[in-house]
Amino acid sequence: MNQKALEQKLQAAFQPFWMALENESHLHAGHAGVEERGGSHFNLVMVSNQFEGLNRVARQRKVYELLSTEMENKNREGLHALRMKLYTEQEWQNKDS
């Protein structure tokens, strides 16, 4: 899964106030031998007002819906796992640290 393409897709759909996408695939190389397919692991932190009024499940579903083609692709080019932390601007600014 091409990181640049993924970033552009997220950027266009969510117009995030802030976004960080990290490729973690190297951490999962050959994990437990149960994943017959390859595919990438990414870690996403994204701040967008499109999450306003949505609970955690609904927020992640929005991202998963955008990336459904990639999630369903069971080849090495596919997206196997996406860790997500999704915030609104308000929540992001209220976060301590």
Binding site: R56, V57, Q60, R83, M84, K85
Partner: peptide, 8 residues
């Protein structure tokens, strides 16, 4: 009720 996956 569905609560979530690992992140949630």
């Amino acid at each position: 009720e569905f609560i979530g996956g690992c992140d949630i």
